[in-house]
Simulated assay, not measured.
Amino acid sequence: MPASLLSTLTTTPLFAVGLTLAAFLLGSALFYRLHKPSWLPAILIAALLLAATLAILRVPYATYQQGATWLTILLGPATVALGMPLYQQLPRIGELWRPLMVCLPIAAMLAASYALMIAWLMGSSQQILASIAAKSVTAPIAIGITEQLGGSVALLMGALLMTGVVTIPFVGLGAKLLNINDDRIIGFALGLNGHAIGTVRAFELSPTAGAFASLGMSLTGILTALLLPLAWRLLGIGS
């Protein structure tokens, strides 16, 4: 592609939006062609295709990110739309609200702390710590938290992708080892730990699993947004 034409295209958001949608559609097609492997979700295939395309075209990530901002804006409404399956499964959710409220704070705290501990032991900088702290939270909320902590949104997006991809096989393996067949528990674990990627996988299992994944993702996001910045300041990590 001529440099002048590429430079003209990248000045408009249509290039980034079109490239993203094309990568997603191709990734989804390859995902189904490979018989939907849980360890290689469509979003990971799309991300790899997109990264390879940007590298081949030599388009800086900052340029792509500026054009893709329009898609980022849509993340909020997409997350809110998950309230519909929550409403449909409200009676089942009401039956388990006590155990859910007990395990949620513990699981959300562990989801943030174990990654931070590993990164700290490896000598990571404060910016890296701030970038991965919200790795188990859905992107619209995680971006706000990361910016507040002084982290890098680019590093966060990579951490979100890795977390979601790794969560799917680990939750499946854990459910198999513990002989857990309840879609409510499996879905809640997928949403709590794997945010949107885990929630997509949960909807593939059943509507009930998807609803509980939406619940886990939403509650984890709210709890983390309220408590993580406070804990960050109290522990003096960002100072």
Rank of each mutant, 00 (worst) to 15 (best):
S214N: 04
M122F: 13
I132E: 00
S4V: 13
A189P: 00
A42N: 07
A47H: 09
A29K: 10
G123Q: 05
L40Y: 07
L129S: 03
T69M: 12
L44P: 05
Q88R: 12
W39T: 12
I132L: 12
Y32D: 15
M122L: 13
L116H: 10
G18A: 14
L129N: 07
L54F: 10
T146D: 13
L90M: 13
Q66R: 11
A22W: 00
P13A: 08
A62S: 15
T53N: 03
Q127I: 11
S239D: 11
E204K: 10
G236H: 08
L14S: 14
L21G: 05
S136A: 14
A154G: 10
I237S: 05
Q126L: 09
L205M: 13
T79V: 09
P37M: 01
G150H: 06
V80E: 06
S136G: 07
L86M: 00
L100F: 01
L205G: 02
A47P: 00
R98D: 10
M84W: 12
T53P: 10
Y64A: 00
L50M: 14
M1E: 12
G76I: 14
G67C: 02
G27D: 10
A142Q: 06
F31A: 04
A111P: 14
N179D: 13
L44K: 04
R58P: 09
T138D: 01
I180H: 07
A189F: 05
Q148E: 15
T72S: 15
T163E: 06
T138P: 03
L57T: 01
W39G: 01
L215V: 00
F24I: 15
D182E: 11
T199P: 05
T220V: 00
Q127Y: 03
L173R: 07
L71Y: 08
I128D: 12
N193K: 11
L161M: 03
A46H: 08
S28M: 02
V80A: 09
L14C: 08
P41K: 02
L82F: 02
P85F: 00
T10N: 11
I45A: 07
Q148Y: 10
K176R: 14
T79M: 08
G76Y: 15
L25M: 09
F15S: 05
L30H: 04
P13V: 03
W232N: 00
L228P: 08
L234P: 02
T220F: 06
I43D: 05
E95R: 15
I168M: 08
P37L: 08
G216Q: 04
P140H: 09
A231S: 09
I168R: 04
L74A: 06
E204F: 11
T53F: 13
S28C: 01
Q66G: 06
T12Y: 13
S124W: 12
M101S: 14
A154S: 13
L96Y: 10
I43M: 07
A16Y: 05
L155T: 12
P41N: 04
L192W: 12
H195W: 11
T199Y: 04
G123E: 11
I180M: 09
R58Y: 05
A3P: 14
W97D: 01
P77R: 01
D182I: 00
I73S: 08
A211T: 08
M217P: 04
A42W: 01
L30M: 12
I143K: 06
A81L: 03
A202R: 03
I43H: 04
S38F: 03
L227T: 15
A139Q: 10
Y64D: 00
